[in-house]
């Protein structure tokens, strides 16, 4: 066991940390932005609207992330027509391919999480909104989505962590993320234990930060479920 090689190569890990952070945060943000409208449309009774989304979700949940990355990165590069198209400069970059695969993957999972939460909305809340004369848009904005987000949060925090761990696959397409850094250090010093243990510590720290953030969010979002402080004059309901 020789951890001096880790400290001597900490800059590789820090670059890896930067790349992992960028890849995961951007794909989660875009993925969530895509997933909200997709989830709303997915609950539509119109088959023509719901079916394509269903197919998209089925594909990205039904295939391993690694296969999706290989299809986008190596697969598309096989076609001359595609290489001549205006999209190629984007797809030429490993970074973009990874980002695209991660975004679509997390969008698919998040769509299902939010759809489940929307369908779990208590009928009473919807009826009350209808009785108050809300339009469909207003009802989604004020009643259904806020309460759906609350229900979706625990499942979504899982998705964030899965995405973080899934991002380690970026290292197979030449990107130096935390796992990629560990593989470089391992290959240079033949010390898999030190190299990958360090990567594990990095992932643990990020996961800890994510859990802390989600807990904070839960504390705020579930404020109405907490026992109220009745000690003050304006406390209580």
């Amino acid at each position: 066991m020789d951890f001096s090689i880790i400290f001597g190569n900490l800059d590789i890990y820090l670059e890896g940390l930067k790349n992992t952070a960028i890849l995961v945060s951007i794909s989660l943000m875009i993925g969530l932005t895509l997933a909200i409208p997709l989830a709303v449309l997915r609950t539509s009774r119109n088959y023509l609207v719901a079916a394509p989304i269903r197919a998209f979700v089925y594909f990205f949940r039904g295939t391993p992330l690694l296969i999706q990355i290989f299809l986008i990165y190596y697969g598309l590069g096989q076609f001359e027509v595609f290489k001549a198209s205006v999209l190629w400069p984007l797809f030429k970059e490993a970074y973009f391919c990874a980002l695209l695969a991660f975004t679509l993957n997390t969008a698919a999972y998040t769509t299902e999480i939010i759809r489940g939460a929307i369908e779990g909305t208590p009928h009473g809340e919807v009826e009350a909104a209808k009785a108050a004369g809300m339009s469909k848009m207003l009802m989604f904005r004020r009643i259904i989505l806020p309460s759906a987000f609350r229900r979706a949060l625990p499942a979504y925090s899982n998705e964030i962590i899965f995405m973080l761990h899934g991002s380690s696959l970026a290292s197979v397409i030449t990107i130096i993320d935390i796992t990629g850094a560990a593989r470089i250090v391992n290959s240079r010093f033949y010390s898999p234990f030190e190299a990958f243990l360090t990567a594990a510590v990095f992932y643990l720290c990020i996961t800890f930060a994510i859990i802390w953030l989600v807990n904070k969010l839960e504390f705020r979002w579930y404020a109405h479920l907490r026992p109220q402080d009745t000690g003050t004059a304006d406390g209580g309901v």
Binding site: Y74, G77, Q78, K83, W88, K92, A94, V172, T174
Partner: peptide, 14 residues
Amino acid sequence: GTQDEAYLDMTAGR
């Protein structure tokens, strides 16, 4: 990871 993957990316123009 493998030489074959490097060849793929060479022909892909990356």
